[in-house]
Amino acid sequence: MSNHHFAHPNQSATPSRKRLLDRHKQYLQFAELKSLAGDRIGAENDYQHAEHFFRSAAEQKDADRL
């Protein structure tokens, strides 16, 4: 099985900054729900995903400036 990622024809190869920030917010919400349910490990995993999307959005912002 290949690890290649193919973008949808109507979607650019790199996600938009807005899309990345939306995913960041989504994972923060997931983490909060898991935390409230007492799932510390699951919450930490979601916080790490949220951080990834936040950093990706920052990188995209820098790339858009070029």
Rank of each mutant, 00 (worst) to 15 (best):
D22H: 01
R65W: 02
T14D: 13
S35D: 11
N10R: 01
R55K: 13
H24M: 12
S12C: 12
K61P: 00
H24P: 01
Q26T: 15
K18L: 02
Y27K: 08
K61S: 03
D46V: 02
S16H: 05
L66C: 02
A58L: 13
D46Y: 07
M1K: 08
L66D: 07
S2M: 06
A37P: 02
I41E: 04
A7R: 05
Y27R: 08
R65P: 00
L66P: 06
L66A: 05
D39F: 04
A50R: 04
L66K: 14
L33R: 14
F6K: 09
Q11W: 15
E59L: 11
K34A: 08
D46P: 00
I41Y: 05
R40D: 13
S12V: 06
L28N: 09
R17I: 11
E32D: 15
A43N: 04
H49S: 07
F30Q: 08
H24E: 12
G38C: 13
D64W: 06
F30L: 00
I41R: 10
M1V: 02
Q60E: 15
S12T: 15
D64S: 11
N10E: 06
A58P: 01
F6P: 01
A63H: 07
R23G: 01
T14W: 11
D64F: 06
A43P: 00
D22I: 03
F30W: 07
R19F: 12
M1N: 04
A7H: 11
T14H: 10
Q11P: 12
S16V: 00
A7W: 08
K61W: 00
N3L: 13
M1R: 12
S16M: 01
E44P: 00
P9L: 04
F53N: 05
A7S: 11
H8G: 04
Q29A: 15
Y47H: 09
H49T: 09
A58C: 11
A58D: 07
I41Q: 11
F30E: 02
F6E: 11
L36V: 00
S56L: 15
N3S: 11
L20H: 06
Q26A: 09
A43Y: 06
K25A: 13
L66G: 15
A63E: 14
A57Q: 01
F6C: 10
A13T: 12
A13E: 09
K25G: 05
K25H: 07
D22S: 06
H24S: 08
N45H: 04
L21T: 01
S56P: 00
F53D: 09
G38K: 15
S16D: 07
Y47I: 11
Y27L: 06
L21E: 05
Q11G: 07
A50M: 04
G42E: 04
